[in-house]
Design a protein around this nucleic acid. Structure first.
Lengths: 243, 243
DNA sequence: ATAATAGTGTCTCTAAGACATTATATT
DNA sequence: AATATAATGTCTTAGAGACACTATTAT
């Protein structure tokens, strides 16, 4: 028991508190920014230019500053890459294996962000290939435009695997599907997003019924155009007031 | 760009790496150890004896050591409190608001643990009261045996709220219900656990059918005894081989 | 007109809720 | 025998899958 602190008031204690007393891990945030387009999941990666693991591809990340929240750090990690002000962003999991970073102990609080493909240039987006079915989980692969698998830094292939697993699990009872589409969209586009995330085809009829019955969709009265067939109704996502 | 590191190999870089270069947050783990008995959720709390927030009730926690995994730290936080070797333990969420701890920046990687009530003395377990329905979420209350609400330390009421919300969300598609029961249990006991977690009654017939159809239950051929009515069959949880 | 997709209506099948009935223990 | 709960069987209802059919655009 420490006489300097035991029984003291909070203010006395804090005046004597030495935060440098113990060795600490570093804390980073890494953000998986995903889009869906053309039936594939894509992720924003950056090529590491400095050691460790220079030349490998990594999720955008940054070390957490002492006075910012974790979510603020995550948005800062995206700031130069995307119009990150209003992207959907949610904490995923904290990865803390002692040897996951060769520098020193580095914890990564991982986030995932979802945007519609129209808001990002395709330049930095790489295609995700999921080598497992359903919610089995495990690392995923990321392939370049030439089809070759990229070498990912640290445990980022595992992090992306957890992202995909999380998306598959949450898709049915959360509005994440809408985050990957523009404000107005057709039911077909919504179904494409769901099928791409789940990695399997869905029944069109029951998908329509389920979505329309959910109360989350509002018909805009407008129709898509520039399509070479009958244009579909455009819908807007409305947050469902719980029952 | 840093000339000392740019273009260097990993080993050159690491030889020069100074982990003390940047100020870092502290990282703690806090563990919510839950049981279900007599129709209530209970949680293991410890009374803080030293500042900050001496006298308040807190989740067992500890600072993460440089060479241990987050899960190891969580088990260590429980070690003196419970036979923690083989409890079910899962990461919940990382809480990182800059002002959540008055000492300095302290991140908390929260875990939850589930054990059957028979394995813990009731002494340190306090009853959880959930003031919201379904998965609305929000902080919960913890009440002493005399019914008075305890004053919880830091953001631990919010952490417990997230635990309850997570349990309600995962109950239907994960085996967490079984973690709160002894190895052999009756369907009635399993239903009690589900009803307690969800905070609402369930239909007995369809609950039985659903559980038996899930393939997760194996009849032991044995029956409960020391009950004052017809004894029920005892079942054992078997991990369901997917499909 | 033809092609292509949007959207509607209906049948079937499965799972949940409701309820009645039978079974098996204790007192 | 009376009581309490376990366990089974059946009817009804809601939602998903399947499929046929109609609607609306472009070429």
């Amino acid at each position: 028991m420490n006489d300097r602190t035991h029984g003291a008031t909070d203010s006395e204690f804090l005046a004597n508190y030495d935060p440098a007393e113990f060795e600490r891990p570093s804390v980073a945030v890494d953000v998986a920014l995903l889009t869906v387009a053309d039936g594939v999941l894509r992720v924003l990666l950056v090529e590491r230019e400095e050691p460790p693991q220079a030349g490998r591809w990594a999720l955008p990340g940054t070390f957490v500053r002492m006075d910012e929240s974790l979510e603020d750090a995550a948005r800062r990690a995206l700031a130069t890459k995307a119009h990150a002000a209003d992207v959907f962003l949610e904490q995923l999991y904290t990865f803390g294996a002692p040897e996951r970073d060769p520098r020193t102990r580095v914890l990564s609080v991982a986030y995932y962000a979802l945007v519609d493909a129209g808001r990002l240039a395709h330049a930095d987006l790489r295609r995700i290939r999921v080598p497992w079915e359903g919610e089995d989980g495990g690392p995923v692969e990321v392939v370049a435009t030439d089809g070759e698998a990229l070498s990912l830094a640290f445990d980022h292939a595992e992090i992306l695997g957890v992202v995909v697993k999380r998306l598959r699990g949450k898709l049915d009872y959360s509005p994440i599907g809408f985050q990957l589409l523009p404000e107005c969209f057709t039911l077909r586009q919504l179904q494409d997003v769901h099928e791409t995330i789940l990695g399997r085809p869905l029944n069109k009829d029951s998908f329509r019924r389920r979505m329309l019955a959910s109360g989350q969709l509002e018909a805009t009265g407008q129709r898509e155009d520039e399509v070479e067939h009958r244009p579909a109704e455009l819908y807007r996502f409305v947050h469902r007031s719980a029952v």
